[in-house]
């Protein structure tokens, strides 16, 4: 699983920027799918209107509280190794954002789709 970690997810983009962004993302995902290595496009996560439920059930408006990074979405790829998955991550437009990172993790249970 490739998890997108954004440093500043709250930044607003113009519709034009959104469109360019979508296109770049689809070009990236299309390249992985063309190798038959895409398992799931996962889902993007909205940054606005979210909550953080803490210890003792304390609810705060989140997710941009004290933590610096926030999760922006994920996709699942089929790879022989974590290194191969990391190669896929390198092409992602998420990394164009300053301070953004992609976390590469193995699924505990392999998903076959």
């Amino acid at each position: 699983m490739l998890i997108f970690r954004h440093e500043d997810g709250g930044k607003l983009a113009s519709p034009e920027q959104m469109q360019v962004w979508m296109q770049m993302t689809m070009d990236w995902i299309g390249g992985i799918a063309a190798q038959n290595k895409l398992v799931s496009t996962g889902s993007g996560l909205a940054f606005d209107d979210s909550r953080v439920v803490g210890h003792n059930n304390v609810v705060t408006n989140g997710p941009f509280g004290d933590i610096k990074e926030t999760i922006g979405g994920f996709i699942i790829v089929r790879a022989e190794s974590v290194d191969e998955a990391a190669e896929f991550a390198k092409g992602s437009p998420v990394l164009l954002g300053d301070g953004n990172t992609i976390e590469v993790r193995k699924l505990a249970k392999s998903v076959e789709l």
Partner: peptide
């Protein structure tokens, strides 16, 4: 066309 092919592959 490229975008349509991307979607098709997904």
């Amino acid at each position: 066309i490229l975008q349509l092919y991307n979607h098709l592959l997904v």
